[in-house]
Computed example of a mutant assay.
Amino acid sequence: MTRAFVFPGQGAQTIGMGHDLADAYPTARAVFEAVDDALGEKLSTLIWEGEIEDLTLTRNAQPALMATSMAAMAALQAEGVEIGAASYVAGHSLGEYSALCAAGALSLADTARLLRLRGEAMQDAVPAGQGAMAAILGLDFDTVTEIAAEAARGEVVEAANDNDPAQVVISGHKAAVERAADLAKERGAKRALMLPVSAPFHCALMQPAADAMARALADVDMQSPVVPLVGNVIARAESSADTIRQNLVDQVTGRVRWRESVAWMSDQGVTEIFEIGAGKALSGMVKRIDRAMETQAVGTPEDVAKAATAING
């Protein structure tokens, strides 16, 4: 069996995530403590006892989801599963940072600080209320791209996340996104849902955030990952630290090519995907991309035990 470890992005956050891992595994608790130290605040208290509105703020959600993924990885390692059990790692948007941390390319502290900065920069790139995102369900990527071009009318609206064969997220100026959503429904979309996000991620409006990440990533120590990263913007494996660094900058304004990434891994012989961290959103996408792919979410001690048994045999 060839397997990949994948790491979730924004939207998977829940109050209490990772708490049972921290209770069951001292190494998982140490991950949350290290992230708290790196940020100089008790993010773990917000994750476990806070309000969902505060956790969902981009500046909090990004490092929080990474911490939960790394806690799950620490629990797996405690059960004898190392990152080398996977042939590839990948992550959805911020999950790409989690994947790089898991694969030894970035330290945990640097990853936490980068994601706090990334969250703040993405939030600040567009004034509140001027941007929006919408999920278009039931139309393929090419159709949604055509609709976005038609709806733009001099504004920005782009396909931001190509998630699976029937789910594409669009992003841009609020009015343009609303026009595209209406057009999509006219063209036969099953649903066009405005998303409760604070900024229009993964589109040209994020250029100020991309500039901020270019400066931050230039100053951070990055190693080549011990397991190749299947990158969001290239939808294939990459192991060069310098190339990955540039891809992370491009990712801020670029499309998350998740459907193509999973298809690429399938073409390389990947048959099992383990979703490390909060939620099961990526597992659902994977099954819609390739029904033959086996998926397993790893976010609780019970999940860890099941995954360890499956991997260790």
Rank of each mutant, 00 (worst) to 15 (best):
L55W: 08
E82Q: 12
E53Q: 15
W48C: 04
H92F: 15
H92A: 03
S93Q: 01
S87F: 00
Y88E: 05
L43Y: 00
L46F: 08
A78C: 05
Y97H: 12
E96G: 06
S98E: 05
E41A: 13
S87C: 03
G95E: 02
V89C: 06
L65F: 06
A67N: 03
W48E: 07
I47W: 10
Q62L: 01
G50M: 06
R59N: 01
V89R: 01
R59E: 14
A78N: 10
A74S: 15
H92T: 03
A90M: 14
S98H: 03
Y97F: 13
E51I: 07
A78E: 14
L65H: 07
L94M: 10
Q62I: 03
A75L: 15
M73Q: 13
S44G: 14
E49Y: 11
M73K: 03
H92K: 06
A86D: 04
E41L: 06
G84K: 13
Y88S: 04
E41R: 13
I83T: 08
E49A: 09
E82I: 00
H92G: 02
A74R: 14
N60C: 05
T56K: 11
A90S: 08
Y88F: 11
R59P: 00
E82L: 12
A71C: 15
I52M: 14
S93C: 05
I47K: 02
P63V: 06
L46V: 05
T45Y: 07
M66L: 10
L39D: 02
Q62N: 09
T56I: 13
M70Y: 03
G40Q: 06
M70P: 00
E41G: 03
A86H: 07
W48T: 07
S69M: 09
D54F: 07
L39G: 06
I83E: 07
L39T: 14
L94S: 02
M70T: 04
E51R: 14
G95V: 10
E49S: 11
G50P: 02
G80H: 15
G91T: 09
D37S: 15
E53G: 07
N60R: 11
I47Q: 03
L46P: 13
E79K: 14
L65G: 01
S93E: 03
G95Q: 08
I83R: 08
G84M: 01
A75E: 15
Y88N: 05
A74G: 07
D37W: 00
T68V: 14
W48P: 01
E41T: 15
L43F: 00
E49T: 10
A85S: 15
A75I: 12
I52C: 06
T45F: 04
A85R: 09
G84D: 08
A67G: 05
I47M: 09
L94I: 12
D54Y: 03
L57M: 08
